[in-house]
């Protein structure tokens, strides 16, 4: 398994946190996904071996927990809250605006490879609805104007990277 050296060291650090190795399955999946962008078949088998489990014991977690994915996504991950409090304040509109800005649909990688937009369930920031997470950062009160602003920022960052 080809992982960054710091990922290997974090994996070795986290396993002894638990009385039973299997408990480290979720932490390892997070670490591998952060390193590789998604969970490959190879990763499933490697994690299983690392924790002395069968591959199915890891595979069933990847298919159960919504945050794990088996395919790559765009460079940035835009997660728009779909649940009631955000929807009441215009969450669907905000999501539509992101889709328009990147010429894509929910669940797909945008044509320029820059983003994947998704609806997610409640992000526990209902008082500042509608909310959106872009990678690890929460953005509050995202109306259409703010969605355009955030999209422009992502595009600028993409342009400077090239």
């Amino acid at each position: 398994m080809n992982l960054k050296p710091e990922t290997f060291s974090r994996i070795d650090e986290v396993i002894p946190h638990y009385p039973v190795k299997r408990s480290a399955a979720l932490p390892l999946l997070h670490l591998v996904q952060e390193d590789q962008g998604y969970i490959s078949q190879e990763a499933i088998e490697w994690i299983a071996a690392k924790l002395e489990l069968q591959p199915i014991n890891i595979y069933e977690l990847v298919t159960f927990y919504p945050m794990f994915r088996q395919k790559p996504i765009g460079r940035r991950h835009i997660k728009v809250c779909r649940t009631l409090s955000c929807a009441l304040m215009g969450g669907y509109k905000a999501c539509g605006e992101f889709e328009k800005q990147f010429n894509t649909h929910r669940g797909e990688i945008s044509p320029d490879g820059e983003v994947t937009i998704e609806f997610v369930e409640c992000l526990a920031s209902c008082g500042t609805a509608p909310v959106v997470m872009i990678d690890d950062d929460l953005h509050e009160k995202v109306d259409c104007a703010k969605a355009r602003e955030l999209s422009a920022r992502i595009k600028t960052e993409a342009a400077t990277r090239q």
């Binding site: 408990s23 979720l26 919504p66």
Partner: peptide, 10 residues
């Protein structure tokens, strides 16, 4: 104390 992260399941 250790921190353990979930993965999006209510």
């Amino acid at each position: 104390i250790y921190v353990h992260r979930g993965a999006g399941a209510y």
